[in-house]
Design a binder for these strands. Structure first.
Length: 666
RNA sequence: GCGCCCGUAGCUCAGUAGGAUAGAGCAGUGGAUUUCUAAUCCACCGGUCGGGGGUUCGAAUCCCUCCGGGCGUACCA
């Protein structure tokens, strides 16, 4: 802090508008003018100024007066002459505001010595849990974990930067059925040499193997049933066709046909998938022998899980040796992303609390038995929320309830963000409703959902062979592709290459991983998006690279000319905004805090990527139009260097908040 | 069957607590450079915002309906 007021123009102007409205509007007509004050927003077109207030039209309606008259009255009461030129009224009653350039000058100058770049720490901090990533520790992370990890870490960092207390929590799967499989595999199939050299890889192999063998037997067992189902679906399809032909006017008939076609396709896909599972085993003598030797593998693996949960000494001991190894493997993945968790409280952590949760639900008369399972039925939802299965095992519903209680009672959290796939929306709806009914409504729970990453074919993103894409190999490929671009670019430099091999490797990593993160975050999190290497690493357009390049350009100016940024900041030079490009640059920099606030309103990191892209874009224009070192007037030169330096700081800080690093040279 | 989500330019996507002529990027076309890093900039081209109806001074945004697509839907997490 430096004593200078940090100005968020948007909230300041809204405050002023609110005062004007309170003054103008009788309280008995409109009790709360807040919503009207919120109607002040940045303009979409610079010709309307910098901000516009849109409240006069709807207010005119409420007051039964012509909107332009209302606008005139508002403008007359709006005390903004220290900030803005006189308000202009346009169209049906828009009030357009343009910031005074002198004010931009002083505000921008205040940023120079402000290490928070104009972002005031929040007045009323809250304690957030950001629950994200949450992989299954028994399996290597794959592309399905990318979005949760990347969106979660961005929200984590932005909330912290704004001044909230945050616990990032990795709610790992470390206690489920997959551990029964691993234990079974370890007991029967382990390769000791492989386990010694690479334990986690061996455990993953064992998991896959047991899974494969279980699937095989399941496929064999259900083959006739699947065939029968397919035949029934085909018969139903024929019948649907007959109905459609017989009743050409029935517009539901073609729909029924479509539906049956889908059912047939689904049944055939199930048969195909089962066949493939059988073939992989049948075609391999060794696997075949294993399968024959372990006909009850699925059931036995389940029993290993049950034994583990019951406290069996051998299984518990195995589990205790596996877990640290698995977590360490995850850690190396997170290091590449720069992700750090405050807490890694997985399913196992909550295990001792589950019986108490179910007992509590019963005591509160919220849970009842249904088909042998203990369920909570939530008003308006047909599906039950199963907290204890017929076999006595608890489910992730139970764990999630215990987690909520722990977050309230022990962590004293105010809000919990669940950064999880949209497909689990119903689960969270039931979870939150149940928690509320249990008396845990004080924790604001929020499902921060996101869509699926798709391949070119619009199906979930897979390798060409149809396997899920591992996160490790995804990052490796991103870095390799980035390296090719770095090499090409550096080799093509007019005065010859300037990066040594180590620097190139470093830049490739920063650009490659940054590209992956940015590509994900710049989409609206709700949308599915199509994964594209070419787009995420493109040298042009809305990419991390473009923004990183803008940063490197600034740093290049300073480095090549021996200008020390710290010294520059201390010279006391003024900011001068004599061209539209400079004015636009300063205004854009001053909107950093608006952008960060926008992110947390609905937990949307894409609003920050958008801001950073706009900022880099403003810089490119400024850089193009305003000579810096060639500028003869030393005061103007200093001012422009200061704008450059601020731009670099905003870009770096902003990218870092997204989990993206910057390079000094590119 | 029920529920949730989506349909915006040739492609990939923003924009949805209603606001002015619907925006970017890519692709396409045409310009700018003896480069303060061209991984750049400027301009042009390109849209019945899936269709129809309604509410409103004003609708991509809210309501209804139809079409098209995705996902979820009792003991996996």
């Amino acid at each position: 802090m430096n004593g200078l007021e940090r100005m968020n123009f948007l909230s300041e102007l809204r405050g002023r508008l609110r005062n004007a409205l309170t003054d103008l509007v009788p309280a008995d007509v409109i009790a709360d003018v807040g919503p009207y004050a919120e109607m002040l927003k940045p303009t979409q077109d610079p010709k309307f100024g910098d901000f516009q207030a849109n409240c006069a039209m709807s207010l005119g309606k409420a007051l039964k007066r012509p909107p332009r008259d209302v606008a005139t009255d508002i403008a007359a009461r709006l005390k903004v002459d220290d900030l803005c030129d006189p308000p202009e009224i346009a169209g049906p009653g828009f009030i357009n505001l343009k910031l005074r350039t002198e004010r931009l000058v002083t505000e921008a100058a205040a940023l120079i010595s402000d290490d928070r770049l104009g972002v005031a720490p929040i007045a009323a901090p809250r304690t957030f849990i950001v629950d994200y990533s949450s992989p299954n520790v028994a399996k290597p992370m794959h592309v399905g974990h990318l979005r949760s990890t990347v969106i979660g870490q961005a929200l984590d960092r932005v909330l912290r930067f704004l001044g909230h207390r945050v616990f990032s929590d990795n709610h790992v799967g470390d206690w489920g059925t997959q551990f029964g499989m691993i234990i079974y595999g370890y007991k029967h199939f382990r390769d000791d040499a492989a386990y010694q050299t690479a334990p986690v890889a061996e455990l993953a192999r064992l998991y896959r193997l047991v899974n494969q063998l279980s699937d095989y037997h399941e496929a064999v067992k259900t083959a006739t049933a699947l065939d029968a189902a397919a035949r029934m679906a085909e018969a139903a399809l024929l019948e649907a066709h007959r109905q459609a032909a017989a009743n050409p006017k029935d517009k539901d008939a073609p729909k029924a046909v479509k539906k049956q076609e889908a059912a047939v396709a689904e049944a055939k896909a199930a048969i195909h998938s089962a066949k493939k599972k059988r073939e992989t085993i049948d075609s391999d003598a060794a696997l075949r022998a294993l399968a024959e030797a372990h006909p009850q593998i699925a059931e036995l693996a389940r029993q290993e899980t049950a034994k583990l949960h019951a406290g069996d000494a051998e299984n518990l001991a195995l589990w205790k040796t596996f877990i640290p190894q698995c977590l360490a493997a995850l850690e190396s993945m997170y290091d590449r992303f720069g992700v750090k968790f405050d807490l890694t409280l997985g399913e196992s952590f909550y295990n001792p609390m589950l019986a108490g949760i179910v007992a509590d639900l019963k005591a509160k008369d919220l849970a009842k038995k249904s088909d042998g399972a203990t369920c909570v039925f939530v008003e308006g939802n047909a599906a039950p929320f199963i907290v204890q299965k017929a076999d006595g095992a608890f489910t992730y519903a139970t764990t999630d309830l215990a987690t909520i209680r722990y977050r309230i009672e022990t962590l004293k959290a105010d809000a919990a963000l669940y950064v999880v796939d949209a497909r689990q929306g119903e689960h969270f709806q039931l979870l939150f409703a149940t928690a509320k009914a249990m008396g845990y409504g004080q924790l604001e729970c929020r499902h921060v959902s996101f869509g699926t990453i798709l391949g070119d074919d619009r199906r979930p993103f897979k390798t060409r062979a149809g396997d899920t894409v591992g996160l490790e190999s995804l990052l490796d490929e991103a870095i390799a592709r980035a390296r090719a671009i770095v090499d090409e670019n550096d080799d093509g430099k007019k005065d010859g290459p300037e990066l040594d091999a180590a620097t190139r490797a470093d830049v490739a990593e920063i650009v490659g991983i940054g590209g992956v993160i940015y590509a994900d975050l710049h989409h609206n999190r709700d949308s599915d998006y199509i994964f594209s290497w070419d787009k995420m690493l493109a040298k042009t357009g809305d990419t991390a690279t473009y923004i990183q390049y803008a940063y490197a350009r600034v740093r290049g100016i300073f480095a090549r000319n021996g200008i020390d940024a710290d010294a520059l900041r201390n010279t006391g030079g003024a900011i001068l905004l004599n061209t539209s490009a400079e004015r636009q640059m300063a205004l854009q920099l001053l909107r950093f805090s608006e952008a960060l606030n926008d992110v947390v309103v609905d937990y949307r990191p894409n609003l920050l990527t958008q801001y950073l892209y706009d900022t880099a874009n403003s810089f490119a224009t400024f850089y193009e139009q305003c000579p810096i070192l060639k500028e003869p007037d030393p005061a103007v030169r200093t001012s422009r260097l200061l704008l450059c330096d601020l731009t670099a700081r905003v870009l770096k800080t902003g990218l870092n908040l997204l989990g993206i690093r910057v390079a000094e040279k590119m």
